[in-house]
Simulated assay, not measured.
Amino acid sequence: MIFNLGSINADHVYRLAQLPHAGETVTAQGYARLLGGKGANQSIAVARAGGQVVHIGAVGADGDWMVELLSADGVDVRHVRRDQGASGHAVVTVEQSGENAILIHAGANRALRIEDVEAALAEAGPGDWLMLQNETNVQVEAARMAQDRGMRVAYSAAPFDEAALRAVLPHVTLLMVNEGEAAQMTQAMGAVQVPMLCVTRGARGVLWTEAGCRDAVTIPARKVVPVDTTGAGDTLAGYLVAGLAAGLNPERALQGAVGAAALAVTRPGASGAIPLAAEVAAFLGQE
């Protein structure tokens, strides 16, 4: 079982010819309101990969539609709490090349309570996984609880926050960062030691290292024409943890995760772009 303490956001997505420069006003070519947030994206990725996932989070009174979408995808939403404040949201700008710039307001995602996590993890046991990102509060408390229960902790250190990383790191089994976050981490903290480290490097693929193993594993990126890169890292993270939880070795889990992320960037949106396991299998089988 996978438990995901994660953000749930309403993504306000604006499509542009080109991302604006400082002080520049541009006209959007399109707009959509979609389900997003690193946590929601990762939970949906786990579910579409075939994994069982319990989402731990919160939305405001305006967030019922997001919880319904999570549930429709097979995510267990019994531990998503309704808060009196506003739900989290993001302003996502996407240019024609597929590159994006994102502004996030945390909202209810930062109103989680320790008792919310305790209630959810009471159902967990040794060998289960807890997923974390940096878009909620109580990550450290959750990671500590998970470690005490014999769970494995997968942590996406994004958005990068040195203090958050230092606090959670002693409890982490799998650390997931992109190339930029890895550079920030090294500059701030030097070499970081964790049992498993996954670094996504865009077109150069994924680098995987494990404590005690001399050789790193490199999984090449799949060649696709990108439409929208929003949520690609979340797709990879969800598929990777789902694969590991299912007992796949890291290389096989990574191959599926890289294939899923490649398919996701060929489609617009975040959670809506995440492929099903059958689509990923077909895509990898064609290569």
Rank of each mutant, 00 (worst) to 15 (best):
L175V: 09
A22R: 12
Q193I: 13
Y155M: 04
A164V: 02
A188M: 04
E141Y: 05
V26F: 12
V172A: 01
L165K: 02
G50M: 01
P170L: 02
S87I: 01
A58S: 13
V91W: 06
M151H: 04
L103S: 14
A72Q: 13
H55C: 12
V59S: 01
E251T: 13
A260H: 03
P220N: 04
V265K: 11
H89A: 10
G30C: 05
G23C: 10
A278K: 10
D83F: 09
H55A: 12
F283A: 05
R252N: 15
H12E: 12
A182T: 07
K223R: 14
G247I: 08
V75H: 02
V265T: 14
V138L: 01
V227T: 13
E123Y: 08
E179W: 03
G50S: 12
G85S: 13
Q29C: 09
A237T: 05
G107D: 07
R144C: 06
R82P: 00
A221G: 11
N178Y: 09
G202N: 13
A120C: 08
P226F: 09
A270E: 07
Q29F: 04
P170Q: 03
R204E: 15
I56R: 08
G202V: 07
A158S: 15
T136S: 10
K223Y: 05
G63H: 00
L236A: 07
S97R: 15
A261P: 04
V194T: 14
H105E: 13
P250R: 12
Q84W: 05
E24G: 06
G107Y: 05
H79P: 02
V77T: 15
A146T: 02
S7R: 03
A72I: 05
D73T: 05
A277V: 11
V227W: 02
C213D: 13
T93A: 13
T235Y: 01
Q184C: 15
S87K: 00
M1G: 13
G50C: 14
T200D: 08
W65C: 06
G39N: 03
V94S: 04
H79G: 03
W208E: 01
G36R: 00
Q96S: 14
A282P: 04
D76L: 02
A146V: 06
Q42C: 07
R222M: 15
N249T: 08
N41C: 04
T136I: 06
N134C: 07
A264Y: 03
L263G: 10
W129S: 04
N249L: 09
R78K: 11
G6Q: 06
V258Y: 10
R222C: 15
